[in-house]
Amino acid sequence: MPLDPADWQALWLTAKLATVTTLVLLVLGTPLAWWLARTRSAWKGPISALVAMPLILPPTVLGFYLLLFMGPEGWLGRFTHALGWGYLPFTFGGLVVASVIYSLPFVVQPIQNAFEVVGSVPLEAAATLRASPLDAFLTVAIPQARSGFITAAVLGFAHTVGEFGVVLMIGGNIPNATQVVSVQIYAHVEALEYTQAHGLAGGLVCFSFAILLIMNRVRRPGQRG
């Protein structure tokens, strides 16, 4: 495949971005999904709707508003600047923040569904055996919702790999920081370098197929009844 060093760098960067994003999403998404699955609060509806919002906005539109919010005139930009972190657009950290927002529903919803399926009965049983709520959550709820976590990780990872419009708006195409594969393929197509575009697109498809296959393998032994 006719891949040049910049293409390889973009592939590596994409893998790194998708991995970091997925891990952040699992950490943030799990308590959120747990709360959504168990709460009877009136806030459940509005919060669920907010979680699903990134599905509604076209990615370039989402990216445009993130560019405004994270910039010198946006409240998030002022906040990060005040903390001494600088502004997020055109940085790897900025892409992680944007990807977390963009892929949020793909991670929260499968975990929430899995927690809802587990229900409260096993947790009550654990409580009668004097398990603390945290203990029951870690040793009963999470293992039983295992399949939901794997689905969430697969979707979060794949959705971040395929991210394009958001990165286009806030990335600035900087090698090794924001120049991910999807943007690189687009640039090749625009430059009429179709051979390189095909090579990189082929690479992306093979890589993603392999990852999804491996994750599918991981899931199978966990599926019960």
């Binding site: 445009f64 560019l67 405004l68 910039g71 010198p72 005139e73 946006g74 657009p89 055109f90 600035g172």
Partner: peptide, 9 residues
């Protein structure tokens, strides 16, 4: 244009 108008660049 949006990069510069938003002040990010």
């Amino acid at each position: 244009h949006p990069f510069v108008v938003s002040g990010n660049a």
